[in-house]
Write a protein that binds this DNA or RNA. Structure first.
Lengths: 356, 356
DNA sequence: ATGAAAGCGCTAACAA
DNA sequence: TTGTTAGCGCTTTCAT
């Protein structure tokens, strides 16, 4: 890393305010304000003068000052992990949906899911008019308190509440589709790889999820356990961090120390693709270990991976969230739950086991 | 998509202000303010009373009001594409680096690189104390004007200026590494797939880049052309949108209508991986068409892809940007240019051509 | 149609 | 140590 001085120093300039514009155009501040919001009651000539002054001074109104009286026309989106393809699809969808509205979207990412509460608070402190929170790791009472002040949409967590709107995928259905698919192929030795929340270690016994968790991974894991038990098969649950390489490590370690199962149901595509690394490294193809992911991210459909995965459109979840937000801002009072449908995309990462 | 009414209506509550806290604690507003910033001059007892009132009322100071006087303690990061793994690595690095400082980072993504100017303005309007802009598609004069008001770090574009700091990868070196590698393997028929900025179509004749472009893709393309010409080989430049599937389509179409080259130098990993789709679909392995990417994103190292790529750490570019920003906020006046080193990660997507 | 003035929630200089 | 007060840049009545 080279550090090079790029040249002489430049003085910082103070940005002009509405008063500067008013002085330049020889009108009152109120007049400028009216022009800015093209409100009723300004003559054509005045409008012109003000416009000219604005351009002359390169004036831009400060959102902070504006939002002291009315709205900031800003919405916030909080995501617990920026390097996750499914989550960024949600952002992308939200972004598209917000275009054409007078609102802007800012994203408040955090490095660890455990910080999501801080992230939400931080956006709220910045006076967003409304906010979207993706799979927040925080208790429901807190969220409800938050949402009485700032209209909120929760994405992912199955925690419908009279206080906030919710957009979820049909996780239960999705997980059943996966298990049906694997059972149909003849698998009985199926492992489940799931994401453990970083700072809150999940109860050692996976069966405890059956009582608790509301996040998508909890529900998928729950269905996995139910279905395995139903058939009298022995469930194997592995937990890992959220990153691809962490999943690789966890799965790799498992393969080294245990008889491998014939199939793996991973909690999402990132984990699945991480696990695939270990398989490919060992030369274990789908006919030895089938792998299923969840989310159907773009890369899952790549022919070099061809990962069977549950498709739920992150894109439309993002769009829906914004739609709900806009409805709230326009005055809707009742809370709403939207469930995004899922389908199973069967690809070549799953096949019949050699010895069922 | 099912829409379900989740229950009865909940009234929205007004958030408490510093005046409410003062009244509750029976002290002045100034006292509360002092406690908030734990400034000098508050008795232990008063501190207690105020703290209690704050918790009682669940009070949170509004950043907007604060920033009217001083700083918003917010920095902005503007990226032109949220669904790009390399860009999200930059965000991740920046996020890590900002932890432990009193600042927060908000991200202002836009859907098209052409909107980056708007994105930057929008962040500036929200009174960020400083901002990072990744490969902005806007003219240099505008950026300089912007940066005299808000300290700015430009990431990616090779446009060092006395007004703002710059963090770039060693794109020239990187591109040379790629060309050296391919030439060494014996390739002469090498195509280049590059990203065309969405709304500003690049000059039809790629040679025009030699004069103009400052963004990483321009420089990589420039080196490609130079090196091909140097050896008297015929350059083939293809342009596409920034998304993986757009790259697949462009490359696929090219393969259908032309004699294929023996190697492809793609402008980044996303484009390379998109092109790989078309290759895999046609059963064309590395021995038929070698592929090189750029960025060394996580997925490039996946054994199922094993993509040769130029490694430049997005993570440290993000960290560096924040470091420079902090230095600026602490008063540095001279502008600085940081160049991140690159290395070539050779993997199995490149090999000797069958018939050189 | 225009502008004076009050006020949004907070900080900071100053007085008490 | 405490409180009073004058802004920060903008919007919004309400006179004129």
């Amino acid at each position: 890393m080279a550090t090079i001085d790029a040249g002489e120093r430049i003085p910082r300039r103070q940005a002009p305010t509405i008063a500067d514009v008013a002085r330049e155009a020889r009108v009152s501040r109120a007049a400028v304000s009216k022009v800015l919001r093209n409100a009723y009651g300004v003559s054509e000539e005045m409008h012109q003068r003000v416009q000219t002054a604005i351009e002359q001074l390169d004036y831009r109104p400060r959102v902070a000052a504006r939002s002291m009286r009315g709205s900031s026309y800003t919405t916030g989106l909080e995501i617990p992990q920026i390097t996750n393809d499914f989550l960024t699809m949600i952002v992308h969808g939200a972004l598209e949906a917000i275009e054409g509205t007078p609102y802007r979207l800012i994203v408040g990412p955090v490095t660890s899911p455990a910080d999501s509460q801080q992230g939400i608070e931080s956006l709220a402190d910045r006076q967003v008019d409304a906010l979207i929170s993706v799979v927040p790791l925080t208790d429901r009472a807190w969220l409800e308190r938050m949402s009485t002040r700032t209209p909120t949409v929760i994405v992912g967590s199955h925690e419908a509440s009279p206080c906030f709107d919710t957009v979820v995928g049909a996780d239960e259905t999705g997980a059943h589709l996966v298990m049906d698919h694997l059972f149909d192929l003849g698998h009985r030795h199926i492992a489940h790889l799931t994401r453990r929340a970083a700072e809150t270690p999940q109860p050692a016994d996976p069966r405890d999820w059956l009582q608790t968790g509301h996040d998508p991974h909890d529900i998928r894991g729950r269905v996995y356990l139910e279905r395995m038990r139903e058939r009298g098969y022995t469930p194997i649950v592995l937990t890992t961090g959220a990153e691809e390489l962490e999943a690789r490590a966890a799965w790799s370690e498992f393969l080294d120390t245990a008889d491998h199962p014939t199939a793996l149901f991973a909690g999402n595509d990132t984990l699945a693709i991480g696990a695939l690394r270990a398989n490919v490294e060992r030369g274990l193809g789908p006919e030895v270990i089938s792998v299923v992911g969840y989310d159907n991210t773009t890369i899952a459909s790549h022919p070099a991976l061809s990962l069977t995965s549950v498709d739920q459109s992150g894109h439309s979840m993002g769009r829906e969230s914004v739609r709900l937000l806009m409805e709230r801002l326009e005055g809707r009072k009742e809370s709403v739950l939207v469930e995004e449908p899922v389908t199973l995309k069967v690809r070549s990462s799953t096949t019949r086991p050699r010895q069922p």
